[in-house]
Design a protein around this nucleic acid. Sequence first.
RNA 1: GCCGAGGUGGCGGAAUUGGUAUACGCGUAGCUCUCAAAAAGCUAUGGACUUUAUGUUCGUGAGGGUUCGACUCCCUCCCUCGGCACCA
Length: 831
Amino acid sequence: MKQKVEEKIVKREEKWSKYWEENRDLYKAGGKKGKKKYVLVEFPYPSGSGLHVGHAFSFTGADVYARFMRMKGFDVLFPMGWDGFGLPTENYAIKMKRKPQEVTKENTDMFRKQMKRLAYSFDWDREVNTTDPSYYKWTQWIFLKLFEKGLAYKKEMPINWCPSCKIGLANEEVVDGKCERCGHEVSQRNLSQWVVKITDYADRLIEGLKKTDFIEKVKSAQINWIGKSSGAKLKFKLKDKIGEIEELEVFTTRPDTLYGATFMVVAPEHKLVKALFSNASKIASERSDDERIDKIREYVKQASKKSDLERAELAKEKTGVDSGLMAINPVNGQEIPIWISDFVLSSYGTGAIMAVPAHDERDFAFAKKFGLKIVPVIKGAEDHDFEESAYTEVDRGEMINSGDWNGLLPQEAIKKAIDFLKDKGIGDRADNYHLRDWIFSRQHYWGEPIPMVKCPKCGWVGVKEEDLPIELPEVEAYEPTETGESPLAKMIDWLKTTCPKCGGPASRETDTMPNWAGSDWYFLRYTDPENDSQFASMTELKKWCPVDVYIGGDEHNTLHLLYSRFIYQFLYDLGVVPQDYPEPYIKRISHGVILGPDNQRMSKSRGNVIIPESVTKQYGVDVLRCYLMFMGPFDGVMAWNEKTLMGVKRFLDKFERKVLLAVEAIDKGERLIEDEIFLVKLNQTIKGVADDLEKFKYNTAVAKLMELVNVMGINNEKLGISKESLRAMIRLLAPLAPYLAEDLWAKVGEGSVHASSWPEVEKRYLVEDEIVVPVAVNGKRRAEIRIQKGLAKEEVLKRAKEVDKIGRWLEGKEIKREIYVEGRMVNLVVG
RNA sequence: GCCGAGGUGGCGGAAUUGGUAUACGCGUAGCUCUCAAAAAGCUAUGGACUUUAUGUUCGUGAGGGUUCGACUCCCUCCCUCGGCACCA
């Protein structure tokens, strides 16, 4: 049964929306007295379907915080903008034969309008749009700097190709071997790509986290993603040189187990395999072994056909082929065979491993399958049954079968092993990371053009800074091409240019940047959005950076946050951002997820989507906002529940009714005595709500306001509440329900409630004169006593023992101990 | 497998440094108003027990421990959710 929201509420929302629009200074950042507070919420991708309830949830949470901080006297920067580049807009434009620029404009207009209705207190004078040439000029500028510093390079490499989106994907955008966006299986394709060396910052990205106040799960997600492991790199000599190759380098985290290395494995893509093929005839004649070479060829061919997904799926069953080559284990001089297998990844470490089958499950499985030698080197493994599994309790036992390392604990043996490698000049300690360099090219139209020029003489040259921005030209067709070229490649006029270095004929890069590029640094642009000569002036950056609180979704905890931190650290190294704090964000808060009423993720196909606009049409904006904040913890996963929403509506109605009654009584000049219980509760609420809002505990903040209203006397009774108290309680509501608060404020206060300050606590009401203290016997509560606050311990204990109910428990027993926790409780221990 | 976060009524969830477990809301039951319903309001509401009370007892995933006292701290285990994962 859809009911229309009451006329009254519609009028109220219209009235105050207009008022706020006319009084924009309310939410303007800068020029205020207090300390700065930069509150940032992830800006949205302006899709064609408008704000969804997830947006409403996170923006409301951010808005409540920003409003609260303003009332606490901070000079708050709370901006909003648009992450406008992206495939959906491009696809829509292709389908409707329209310009993406126009579509984006329409969508952002719609988003802005909806946000204003939801009373978000953004400083609209600082709006940014990543698709605006005056914005992406600086996105391109950052790329030029990366290139200048050698952190961007072009490389022909196999990339993840989504045949459906016709676009190259970063490793990060491939989930379970499928395109993150469309779910299509990803294939490999060789393309020349711009790559950004984020790996150079891997350690810094881990270290920097220590300085931040991110929640634990975000820190660990980032650390896991970077995936640092420490160990050693070492070279094994080949028994016989193959082509130019004399040795095989591996990475291991456990150089201490070197004596247990009984074979080696290289990835099918390893250069050793290629060397094997190019020297095949020689090997064949020397060893009359071309059958083996054929077998290897066949294996490598099969492996190359498998996608990463297939390789992982077939993980249980190891496959491989003997290369016929032998290496020499440097610790004991033993000759060990080199195998080829796709369980070794070419993209990690050196693409080759030393296998210690006794203590590694994968090496073990491989050894079992191909009948390779297993030598245990860690104490405890002697009694282990090596028929079934590897012995993996490798952190505590002493070394065995390991020459003069015998008896050492693993940590000591690792040190010794590294010393040994260094002495011999065949290795050293080394770190490895799961993090890969960042593939930065996309073969699409609707993105920032990469500002590079290819000159036949000079190679890749960055465009001149004064020529930025390199604007997207208007094209006839936006369709991506089968060849993997961007649609821009068809724009001959745009393509042709001159080399910035030598002035000769040259052509532009036609790939565009990934979505992440524009969102890496948008928070910096908010500080100085109109600046034409810099991405932001140092003065403004110093004024607002770093971001105090960054509110966003878990889905951005690894990629966006990592890229963004990386770019900030890079800008920090350039010296173009303030040097007193090396991280962009002090605190990261993740907002939760709202599920449909059926407890399932909202989706159009399930038909369980809740649209904020239809909720506000039915109940009003304040109800939606308060409900969203009351549903559960801000970072929780919660299902939409209309019944609970009705409860919130009842609360707001009650709040309004009671305040109006009290106002009426004041206006009539009725002399009513203010209720002491109410005053105590009011002051507790002022403190409690402030504490909660500070910590993003919105659900309990709303609960406390409900409690306050609940003690405001029985309905319809004359309420003796002073104007001052009413002003306080309306201000408490203001961050959560801005319309109702403004409406009620108009009756008791001056100006806008949103320009008022947070009410002061009157401490004398914070502690009641008379308090109730529970009395326990042997830790179980048996009674309670009312006492005057501050009563002496002896007196409290005496009173406690006098209580009838307690006497019963003490009868015939000896009191062994008497405990009184000031104002908290009494405990009598009897035997 | 590794890392992280959790497990509290019929449900969503509260609980400062260890100090009245279940705030607040939903649901449910009874009542008021009403011709009636809706809306609104009031009251009750963790389980079990019987002596129905100013009652007893059990209760925060399971089992131990520390403590006068444990949802909270320690140990062992189980389960759920999230991240990473043939990463050597």
